[in-house]
Amino acid sequence: MSVIAFAKNWEGKFKKSTYELVSYAKDLASRLNTQTLVLSIGEVDESELEKLALYGADRIISVNDSRLNVLSSRIYAEVISQFVRKEFATHILLSDNNSGKAISPRLSVKLQAGLAAAVLDVPKSLEPFVVKKQVFSGKAFAYVQIDSEKKILTLSKNSFGVKENPSTAAIEYFTPELKEDLFKIKVKSEESSDNKIILTDADIVVSAGRGMKSPDNWKPVEDFAAALGAAVACSRPVSDDGWRSHEEHVGQTGKVIAPNLYFAVGISGAIQHVAGVSRSKCIVAINTDPEAPIFSVADYGVVGDAMTVLPKLTEIVLNGE
């Protein structure tokens, strides 16, 4: 028995979500009275790998192969499953992000291991193994019991927190056996979007809706977001009408986010929108309509016109109160 956390890197660097996952793995391993193994795939410097020890990794294992720098769910699942079998690991943890979502289902089939996705808390019980997850895009929760011997969890962002727990893990290397035909998908080219801050990673999000009245009125939104170092998002009608890109749509059928601070500007707060943002730690609503349903889920509210409120807020933030 052991716990394995897959530490995803982005161009050789780990993120807060990686450290949160390692913290969670350490906590689970302590409950199970076993070791925390952290597996990194692709080229990562030793100085970066060492950081994983700060959050409780007992062993840090690197698959330092340049062919694996680009994510392929098929290959990554193969690498992880070979390592799981070698170590007789029982609990496999991934972050609930793009890569975790892509890898975990394949891993589940390879290892005949039940998968609980978007887990929100430490297990409710270990025997049987029951975890809490989000269902209906945040409108409810479910307790999922995994019945297989091996278990896979993907952890929702900001559900456990980053917890320091320093250890003295040495870095080991692992070389999986990979058949050439696994490298079948070729990336022809890559385009990067203008958004510098990735919405699903952002700690602060400024989101605007139909209340802005016109796609030409987004400058105050962007200025306020820039002042806060926040990502810009929007509601569904705004992206459906082509005012803003689909990439910015948050809500039940768009991106589901969990930032520390969420500003809903000119967004009435339809149930589908709220479903996508309800895990935000703090919600601020700015709306001209005092009866807007968004105020019933917000922590702080301002009744007013965004076109005047936002520039004032931007000024306050920039001038440091």
Binding site: V135, A140, V144, S278
Partner: peptide, 16 residues
């Protein structure tokens, strides 16, 4: 490999 054993409603938020 898995089953849902129970559901839960989210708690109502304190007032704004």
């Amino acid at each position: 490999l898995s089953q849902i054993v129970e559901f839960e409603q989210p708690q109502a938020k304190a007032s704004c």
